[in-house]
């Protein structure tokens, strides 16, 4: 098997970023759990987060909500990409190190 080429993972990342660009089109309705929590009257048990960074996928300080959502999506997509790649690479490297011993 050939290794996934750089072109293919860049294409995959671009696809993820395109989905992030479309995120303002997402359904505004509450999700399944929120709906059940509202219907069954336990939604008020939810506590507010102790801090807010990019809460509710709206990048702070941007008045245009669609733009703020898109920016939040792009930041999150790249962050998840980098963190997951880093974790995977760290695990992989350790295995390589053991093999050389």
């Amino acid at each position: 098997m050939k290794a996934p080429s750089r072109r293919i993972w860049i294409a995959g990342l671009c696809l993820a970023l395109i989905v992030a660009l479309l995120s303002p089109l997402a359904s505004p309705h509450p999700d399944g759990l929120e709906r059940v929590a509202e219907d069954q009257g336990f939604i008020q048990r939810a506590l507010d987060a102790p801090y807010h960074l990019i809460a509710d996928y709206v990048f702070p300080g941007i008045s245009n909500e669609a733009a703020a959502t898109i920016l939040a999506g792009i930041v999150g997509t790249l962050l998840v990409f980098g963190i997951t790649w880093g974790l995977a690479a760290a695990l992989r490297r350790r295995e390589g190190a053991q093999k050389r011993v």
Partner: peptide, 22 residues
């Protein structure tokens, strides 16, 4: 080793797709 980029891309795609409520 060849799975490392695929893991990053898959996680990134899932994050973005999770924003797309239907």
């Amino acid at each position: 080793e060849r799975q490392v980029p695929l893991m990053g891309v898959t996680a990134a795609f899932i994050f973005a797709a999770q924003m797309m409520n239907f």
